[in-house]
Amino acid sequence: MTQTTAILERKIGGATDLQSVVRTMKAMAASNIVQFENSVRALADYSRTVELTLGVCIRESQSPSRAKYIPEVATNMTAAIVFGSDQGLVGQFNTIVADEAMRTLASVPGKHMIWAVGERVRARLADTNSQLVGQFNVPSTVQAIAPLVGQLLIEYETQAKQHPGTELYLFYNRPTTGSLYEPVRRRLLPLDNAWRRQCSQTPWPTKNLPQVLGDSMQTLRKLTGEYLFVSMFRACAESLASENASRLSAMQRADKNIEELLVTLNSSYHRQRQSSIDEELFDVVSGFEAFRASK
């Protein structure tokens, strides 16, 4: 009986320690969600400014068809950047975004090359016929997102020089209100006519109309680079917010399961302990009765 009680005590202690770890991870995930969501909101004004100035440059161009970051030449190459996670405990997070990428690329003809951001999503994408040309670690802070985006842009530009007109897709999970997150697919390059037309028709918010000084095409290329940077930064931040939301949900379920397990273990421990006490009291009473009978 004592051995069984000791085993229950060890199980209760182990479950309590695990619950402490789970609650710490919950707090960290909740804090990270706020951090990355704030970065996305802070980026909104800058992104709006970049799009407005792009519209001005496109309108200033003599021919809107010239407003391209990469010439629209025939190519059989498609590049994709897939944002996933390095760590587990995120449910179907990596599976969902990898399936979205594979489903989209399967409908795009030609060769495909993929950069995976995260070890877990890379393992998922390794099962496809697409060429994995690079892998990057997932940033853990907002400050680490910008260096990652810079590396991604360098990698893409290197490949684009060898294959002009290479299309660029982004795949990531975005937080939603109705559920934890949803997969997102974005085609960034080349800039199509519909996007340029919509951007050029966006009205300037004030009466002081801007002018483009110098070479409008060179300015347009610089702004397009900023547009790519902002788009990738936002995709990475939203992916990190979704990852932490998924981890928070998993930790909440784990915390609930551990709490139910502790209730069961404590109930069993108290029954065992009470049974042990009853047996000890019974032995004492029996001994006393036997002693009194002998007298």
Rank of each mutant, 00 (worst) to 15 (best):
L170N: 06
E60F: 07
Y269R: 14
H270G: 01
R103G: 03
V21K: 10
N173S: 14
A30D: 14
R185F: 01
Q151R: 15
R253W: 04
L265D: 05
Q272M: 08
R23K: 11
L180E: 06
K11I: 03
T2L: 15
Q198T: 12
A241W: 04
A42N: 15
L261Y: 01
E280H: 12
I33N: 04
S276N: 09
I277S: 09
E280I: 08
R196I: 08
G287P: 00
L262E: 07
T95Q: 13
S130V: 03
I277A: 13
R120I: 11
I154V: 15
T176S: 15
G214E: 05
S246L: 01
G178H: 14
S39E: 09
G14Y: 09
T141R: 08
I114C: 11
A241T: 03
K295R: 15
L170A: 13
I81K: 08
D17M: 10
Q151F: 01
S200L: 04
T166W: 02
N266G: 09
E9R: 15
A15Q: 06
T5G: 12
E157Y: 07
K222M: 13
Q3K: 14
Q162H: 05
R247F: 01
W115S: 09
S31W: 03
R247G: 07
Q252P: 00
Y181S: 14
K68T: 12
N137Q: 11
T53R: 14
